[in-house]
Amino acid sequence: MGCGEFIVKYILFFANLFFALAGLVLLGLGVAAQLQIKSLGDMLAAVADGQLQIAPITAMAVGSVVFLIAFFGCCGAIRESHCMLVTFAIFMLVLMVIKIALATVIFVGMERVLAEIPKWLGDAFASDVNGFHEIEKTFKCCGPNGALSYGRIALPETCCASSPCLIINAYSGCNAVLNDFFSTFGLVIGIVAIVVGAIELVAAVFGLCLANHVRNKYRRSRY
């Protein structure tokens, strides 16, 4: 193996280690966001019509697939298997398209989700105030729009970090807190998807180059 092929082989190997870690990051972010959404309970999940769960579930699925394919790519690079390398390159190109689609859906769809959050929280607060306390406890917020959402009613303990719970030490409104949470989550997922997608394109090219070298070496060995 020449110097160029040796470099490509190990660049591909270490690139796949990066993909494996990136896949775990996507998986971890998806799990963390899903746990946060699950903690909101069935009340908000019902009024949101499942839209809040699309991005976390997609991130978990894509992260798991990326991790498995990266492991497959590492084996193909080390063993110099033409079949495994070509299969890996095809998967990389497919995943790149999926990453771009995921980033597009997140960046385009997130605006609609953020615009709907005040309505979802308002409906949840109006239908079940006691159930809304779980949202306040999870996200450390108070009412849809802050302490004034409760009017003349005494503030619940979930609205404050310490007792007694008063307007002066109450958390911010849940509208603003959840808006920041989903904005940050969407931005991080979108950026990770774009960066990984770009590197996947390079890895696919390297994989095809190495596969071509392996095929040529096999042909030369037969003569």
Score class of each variant (00 low, 15 high):
Leu210Thr: 08
Phe72Ile: 11
Phe185Ala: 15
His213Val: 14
Ile189Cys: 11
Pro156Cys: 06
Ile194Tyr: 02
Lys9Cys: 09
Ser64Leu: 15
Ile189Phe: 03
Phe185Pro: 02
Val31Ser: 00
Phe13Glu: 07
Val192Gln: 08
Ala147Tyr: 10
Val86Cys: 13
Cys3Ser: 04
Gly73Glu: 02
Gly151Pro: 13
Ala193Cys: 09
Gly41Phe: 12
Phe181Leu: 15
Asp180Leu: 13
Ala61Asn: 10
Val86Ser: 15
Phe132Gly: 07
Cys159Thr: 01
Ser64Pro: 04
His133Trp: 14
Pro156Asn: 11
Leu148Phe: 14
Leu155Gly: 05
Val205Trp: 07
Cys174Phe: 05
Val202Phe: 12
Ala15Lys: 12
Phe132Lys: 01
Phe182Asn: 12
Val129Asp: 12
Val65Asp: 02
Gly197Thr: 02
Leu40Gly: 10
Arg219Asn: 13
Gly50Thr: 03
Cys3Pro: 04
Phe67His: 06
Val8Asn: 03
Ala126Pro: 06
Cys141Asp: 04
Pro56Cys: 03
Ile7His: 11
Leu68Ser: 08
Ile37Trp: 05
Gly50Asn: 04
Trp120Lys: 04
Leu93Asn: 05
Leu114Cys: 01
Val47Arg: 01
Leu201Val: 09
Cys159Pro: 04
Leu44Cys: 00
Ala176Ser: 09
Ala20Asn: 03
Pro156Glu: 11
Cys159Met: 08
Cys209Pro: 07
Gly4His: 12
Ser221Phe: 08
Leu35Asn: 13
Gly4Asp: 14
Val86Leu: 15
Gln34Tyr: 12
Ala89Asn: 04
Gly109Ser: 02
Asp123Arg: 05
Ile37Leu: 02
Val47Cys: 05
Ile135Met: 06
Gly109Asp: 00
Gly4Pro: 06
Met43Tyr: 15
Ile106Trp: 08
Ala48Thr: 04
Val31Pro: 03
Phe181Asn: 12
Asn130Leu: 12
Tyr218Ile: 14
Glu136His: 07
Leu155Arg: 04
Ser183Gln: 15
Arg219Thr: 12
Gly109Asn: 04
Leu208Cys: 12
Ala124Cys: 06
Ala32Asn: 08
Glu116Ser: 13
Leu40His: 07
Leu201Lys: 10
Cys74Glu: 06
Cys142Arg: 08
Gln34Asp: 02
Val202Thr: 03
Leu121Gly: 00
Ile167Gln: 13
Leu148Trp: 13
Ala154Gln: 11
Asp49Glu: 10
Val97Tyr: 03
Tyr171Lys: 01
Ile37Thr: 10
Leu93Asp: 07
Ala147Glu: 07
Arg215Ile: 10
Gly50His: 06
Tyr10Phe: 03
Ser64Tyr: 07
Gly23Leu: 01
Ile7Tyr: 12
Asn212Leu: 13
Gly146Thr: 07
Asp123Phe: 05
